[in-house]
Design a protein around this nucleic acid. Structure first.
Lengths: 244, 244
DNA sequence: GATGTTATTTATCGAACGATAATTAAATAA
DNA sequence: TTATTTAATTATCGTTCGATAAATAACATC
């Protein structure tokens, strides 16, 4: 199922550039290169490559494969991360915490610009951030694994993005004052969010041919949504969530 | 990571109901139960349980775990499936081919009912079919694995569902004749499809609390979409896909 | 009841996995 | 230069995995 390139069999190989000195010409074992790096840089380097590998294969990717890509031996990983799960946790932190931009929320709340412009600008920047194999694939791997990364991230999206959008949209339609959005209202905006997110899943995970480019898709989706959401918001506000 | 319940150590155990006769009271090895089933039933039974297991754990679920749940020994699986991948293929067939309903397309094309009613009815039935852990989780597992199940399924969705919906909607708005839908038009309906699908992902994969029930979500999403899509379709039709 | 077929189990192989202990050598300080 | 520290490697353990070969026992046929 995996390569195992016959070059180096079962034994753990150091590798990464045979010692440029023509040292061991005997052909047996090449002198292993041993470059000593600062722990801080190594830590970052390990996480960076781990993101790459996990995005490709998933979390069942072997630590030996990761070490090989880094040009180090497998046990070295355990000097920097007590266990594989700790490495995975560092990956989560890097992607889903460090890449979150507070200006997303701020931009959406900037009432000096029309609501459509704010929403389109947000989704263009948001798509530019998360429509990468690392972000989307690892996000789905994590979700299927059952870690609560996704629940927590979805909570953040709802609080920092969807509720502000909902309120701003309601305001722009002259509906309701400052009451918090109802679940039905927020759910409406989840549908838009999910529709745009799923564009990325089709493109990056399924590798489905995407004849419509991102900005066009976003513009049309937001236009359709904003045109249609007015009456629905009005209806929801009028009957105060009473069922038909 | 897995249980390994101390009861049965490394050795492959037959199991499944100790022989109800109080046979081996010596405590050592229980007489293994050997019931002989018809190959046809076994095949179905294996696929059924495999779906259950793969939905929980993913395709890296062990064949031993599957055998244990079936109450048989692990090598028996290889009498019915040449390899694990063949078992997985049977799982795909069962879920994504056998569960497809041709009446979805037919119902969407039934011009005797209003377009909104057709679309809402379709999504309610569609959600009832695919919003299960087996369907959604295995679908995402397959997508991340790189098999082309998802590309093929998405093609079917586009051809059997989204293009009919697009044409029917265009007709109901009095726009365009029988020309095939443009990619931009189809992409609009992909956004609705993705938005609704992602509701299922949040509910079933992320286990996000869902305060709005499915029928309400579907009704509001379709209402918003159908209200807003008219002007956008009109704009797309008028300028013949020329960029702004 | 004897015989033949085959569903099922027992036993086992080789590879890959996560992780640990002991050893080696590169950088730093004396 | 020599001594100290520790980054990095070598070697290896115990498990689990997918898969195969051989032995066994349940059912069908005569």
């Amino acid at each position: 199922m995996i390569n195992a390139t016959a070059d180096e069999r079962n034994v753990t190989t150091p590798m990464a550039g045979r010692s440029s000195s023509l040292a061991a010409a005997e052909g047996k074992a090449l002198a292993p290169r041993r470059t000593r790096n600062k722990p801080e840089e190594r830590h970052k380097e390990f996480v960076r490559k781990a993101i790459e590998l996990f995005a490709e294969v998933g979390f069942e990717a072997g630590t030996r494969e990761l070490a090989q890509r880094l040009g180090v031996t497998q046990p070295l990983l355990y000097r920097y991360f007590p266990s594989k799960d700790d490495l995975i946790a560092a990956v989560y932190q890097e992607i889903y915490v460090n890449r979150w931009k507070p200006q997303w929320r701020e931009g959406l709340l900037d009432e000096s610009r029309p609501i459509r412009e704010r929403i389109v600008a947000f989704y263009e920047d948001y798509a530019g951030t998360i429509f990468t194999p690392e972000w989307i694939r690892i996000y789905l791997f994590a979700g299927l694994r059952g870690v609560d990364i996704n629940r927590r991230y979805a909570t953040t999206v709802e609080e920092q993005i969807l509720r502000p959008i909902t309120l701003a949209t309601r305001t722009s339609f002259g509906l309701g004052g400052g009451e918090p959005p109802t679940p039905e209202e927020v759910e409406l905006f989840w549908t838009l969010q999910g529709g745009i997110f799923y564009y990325g899943v089709r493109e990056i995970v399924y590798r489905f041919p995407m004849p419509v480019d991102r900005p066009t898709m976003i513009r049309n989706a937001v236009d359709t949504f904003l045109t249609g959401v007015g009456p629905v918001l009005k209806r929801l506000a009028e009957r105060g969530d009473a069922p038909a």
